[in-house]
Design a protein around this nucleic acid. Structure first.
Lengths: 178, 178
DNA sequence: GGGAGATGATTAACATGTTAAGTGAATTCC
DNA sequence: GGAATTCACTTAACATGTTAATCATCTCCC
């Protein structure tokens, strides 16, 4: 049996004898970023071995997946869709192009923009990985429940939208400091 | 520099003229790892500036936070609690120790194990960051709703638990051994 | 008690995340 | 119409994620 044992070996409340009145903070496991990270890792752990066996990282897969949905796409737009930062995307595109999985050309009317598309070889790779990937996703859906999964998607989307306008918490911090 | 809302520049279904019968895959935005990643990034985007202004990365903060909950803790256990892989933790502990934010000693009865604890300087740093951090968290809670937030936590926990035993060939081998 | 294997932690090597700076092409503005 | 600015990447630099290898203990078993 693997990882999922008990969290209670941490013994919270043990360190309170050292300092008397510390700023109270949430219990660690209740931290939202942590919950999201753990959940995501639990999901990705299922996919990584399959991707790796095909010589792909998670991000490379994301890019190829995004490219199958369009004929061609500009780099900035691809970064937005695949949710990667520019620098990461630059490096990965260089690698994918060297492996002939994608093709790149300059935009016709704008010398700054680059247009990317998936190659035949890239499509073949996608089709080789897709069945396993879909099977894993189906098993996840079966275990968690399709309805619950849809609900989770919805709640995550709302969360993202809720925080959209919450601009630089920098300013709030500065205000609080002064 | 607000995020634009238009997702429809992607024009899904445009690439279907190139290859006739491709393996159908989920729409990208419905991918669970992607949803989790986007939500987590939306949250972390709020905290990063404050942490950075105090010279801390997200992971360094996680470690210090975890250390405040215990008197001392072994490295492996800390990795589990802070949800970091061993190699990452090793590097970060080296850095935090050099900055005198933590202390490290060998376990009494086992020369392999190392025991870590937060230093007075580390505690001071935590207390300097905590107010801002809590304020941000409170604002997130206010925007999203406390009840919904608790429900999201619950759903994420269930998801993680649902996938716990879902062996990736790796765990299958382990089970076969036992 | 000594060697084989297991275990805890680190190091190595490569890929990505993150921020800042650089480069070359388009736009703006006088 | 040319300098200043903006824009679309790209590089650079550093920190972490991820897997494999290494190293030093420790345990077990003979």
């Amino acid at each position: 049996m693997a990882r999922k044992k008990s969290m209670d070996e941490v013994r919270p409340g043990q360190g309170d004898d050292a300092s008397s009145r510390r700023t109270p903070m949430r219990e660690f496991s209740r931290s939202l970023p942590m919950s999201l990270l753990r959940a995501r890792e639990a999901v990705m752990r299922q996919f990584r071995p399959s991707l790796r066996s095909h010589g792909l990282t998670e991000q490379q897969w994301r890019i190829l997946r995004a490219l199958t949905a369009v004929d061609e796409i500009e780099v900035t737009e691809l970064a937005r869709v695949a949710f990667l930062l520019g620098p990461s995307l630059s490096r990965i595109l260089r690698d994918l192009e060297a492996r002939a999985l994608i093709e790149r050309k300059a935009a016709e009317n704008d010398g700054r923009r680059a247009v990317v598309s998936i190659s035949a070889k890239g499509l073949k790779l996608i089709e080789a990985v897709a069945p396993t990937s879909e099977a894993i996703y189906a098993e996840i859906t079966r275990r968690y429940g399709a309805r619950k999964l849809a609900e989770l998607h919805e709640m995550l989307g709302v969360l993202e939208a809720s925080l959209a306008g919450m601009g630089s918490a920098d300013d709030a911090a500065v205000e609080a400091d002064e």
